[in-house]
Amino acid sequence: MKSIKNVPNVEFRAPNIQKSGVEVLDLDIFYKKLSQCKFDPSKPHRINYFCFIYITEGEGGHFIDFQYHTFQKGSFIFVNKNQVHAFDLDSRPQGKMINVTEAFFDSILTNIRLPLFTPTHLVSSYLPVLNLSQTLTQTCDALLLEIDRAQTPANSDPLLIQLLFSSLLVALARERKSNTEHLSETQTMRFNQFLLSIEEKFTHTREASAYAEILHISYKSLNQLCKLACDQTAKQLIDAHTILEIKRRLIIDNSQVQEVAYELGFDDVTYFVKFFKRHTLLTPSQFKEYSKAK
């Protein structure tokens, strides 16, 4: 595990992304700009936008939320908003980095119904690295080239960029495998709504029945949906996100255990410690020390 002390929060401020919501950047250019960064991208950092990394040459690994995921030529790496990740600057693979704002997704997701950027990192069936087929590689190369062209000052066309990026998402979704493929469209949308609700509400409630009310379904129906989607209960998914966010908060600015407990809605620090240890076999303090030692 990489050292995860004092994790910075990173906002994306490139001129292109301000105009269109999408920026396609060659990794070579990214490497050349490293000296201008106010943080070390090879160290864990939390992002407030969505990030794709498309590998065209090389192999290595990418750190995402306390896990190290290997990649190779033809891999597509998905990093969700608010996730903590770190780049592999030892191997320096070639390829593209695609940074996308949340506002951009809001503008296109009304037209395409895809689960790519719901908090699917809570579900083990959604792997963050997709190895593309030869056909999909060719499709991605062509679409990314057209997106890049559509962002030049002479050809700037926000609508065209939306259409091209929507096409890219659809192509990736067809090949990205998960065990939710057997769900109906309605079930998929409701399950994704539940995952998003967890991110928004978990500091206020960790009771599955409360989320059932939010979704206007019964507690039993919500549990059945979760079991069908990922063989986990609703409560297990809520707790999984809570544990993940505790880990993130513990390492951001080296936050104290009591501070994290209160920020995440735990009134009793003793219960907070027991909750964390029940799921990780470590106390929050032990987790911090273990992480620093790595």
Rank of each mutant, 00 (worst) to 15 (best):
I251C: 15
I214S: 09
L109Q: 13
L168F: 08
E146A: 11
I4R: 12
E245V: 10
D268T: 06
S20M: 07
S124G: 08
F165T: 04
S178V: 01
I243T: 05
I251G: 07
H279I: 07
H182Y: 03
E146Y: 13
V100E: 00
T110Q: 11
A234W: 00
S167F: 04
D40A: 10
K247H: 02
L282Y: 15
K220Q: 10
L160H: 10
A171W: 03
A86E: 05
F275M: 05
P128D: 02
E23P: 03
D141P: 04
N192R: 12
K220C: 08
F275C: 03
S20Y: 04
P15Q: 04
P41K: 02
T118S: 15
T56H: 00
I217A: 05
F191T: 01
T270M: 12
V7P: 00
A293D: 11
Y271A: 10
E175L: 02
I238V: 06
L244H: 08
F63M: 10
E245F: 12
Q36I: 07
E146L: 13
S75G: 03
I53Y: 05
H45L: 03
V10Q: 01
E185R: 09
Y211E: 03
T118Q: 13
R176A: 08
F63S: 06
E146I: 09
L89F: 02
C37A: 15
K220S: 12
N9Q: 13
E289G: 04
A142I: 05
T152M: 07
Y68G: 05
D268F: 09
I243A: 01
V273C: 11
E199H: 09
Q18A: 14
I252P: 00
R248T: 12
I243H: 03
R206D: 05
M189W: 13
N6C: 04
E213P: 04
Q134A: 11
N223S: 03
V123A: 05
L196E: 14
D231S: 14
S91G: 03
Y219R: 08
A229Y: 03
K33R: 11
T120H: 06
D40R: 11
L183N: 01
Q256D: 12
S209K: 12
A14D: 13
L237I: 02
S3T: 10
R278D: 15
D106T: 09
Y290V: 08
L25P: 01
F52M: 02
V170E: 12
I243W: 02
R249N: 15
K5D: 12
A210G: 06
Q232T: 09
R92Y: 03
L244F: 05
R13Q: 13
K43L: 15
A240Y: 08
T135M: 11
N99L: 12
Y290R: 09
K81L: 10
F266W: 02
I98A: 01
V22N: 00
Q258N: 09
P128A: 03
P158K: 00
L228C: 09
I246S: 04
S167M: 08
R278A: 15
R249W: 13
G58Y: 06
